[in-house]
Design a protein around this nucleic acid. Sequence first.
DNA 1: CAATCTAGTTTGCATTTCAAACTAGACAGA
DNA 2: TCTGTCTAGTTTGAAATGCAAACTAGATTG
Lengths: 106, 106
Amino acid sequence: MADTPNIDLDAVDDVIHGRLRLGVMAYLSAVNPASFPELIDKTGATNGNLSTHLTKLETAGYVRQEKGYKGKRPQTLVHLTPTGRKAWIGYLEAMKALLGHTISDG
Amino acid sequence: MADTPNIDLDAVDDVIHGRLRLGVMAYLSAVNPASFPELIDKTGATNGNLSTHLTKLETAGYVRQEKGYKGKRPQTLVHLTPTGRKAWIGYLEAMKALLGHTISDG
DNA sequence: CAATCTAGTTTGCATTTCAAACTAGACAGA
DNA sequence: TCTGTCTAGTTTGAAATGCAAACTAGATTG
């Protein structure tokens, strides 16, 4: 049967899809909040790069950066927002739909 | 439970990960081969854009473009290569590992 | 008080992405 | 036949994105 798969790329949120941001979101979905150095460690990003991408996620409303102190040193805690979690779930669904087609492959 | 997830972004193949290329690969994983216009239709890409990305996938050895004729009109058939299918499977695994962390979320 | 370390931001270059403009042949009508 | 239009694709240049080097700022250490 030729029921061809529906490819809905618009459902794939580009803000999340970017490789590094995807890593950040995936990590935050399990560990929330996470510190800046922790994210560098886990994702392998440089600090400059991470900073840029966090700003992008923050602009989209997906994370919140809480600038505080750990002792006397500054420490940014990155929180996944409710909006961010919702977007993450949506992304998971979109990807599941997209990636699922191979499953029944012989 | 603080066993933090391992975020292996290097395992996420950038050639596949690009949004449009992801759509092409997903479609080809189910419908192989597919024609150029069919891919335009399914992914919503412009022809210029699709052309560029197919070249990229071809350079990576993931697809093969078979230029033939349907009647007298030219028709390019895009085939997923064995290498491409292998890469696709690898991509699926990488994403599964990355996206899986949320599953047990309450 | 000089050097170094942690934490993070700004900046500029390099790559990537995208669609508009173009090429080329097939068909349709006068 | 030759003019226009349609399908099928490629080239190209402008815009967005991604990345890490260079920089800022305060804390700690010798």
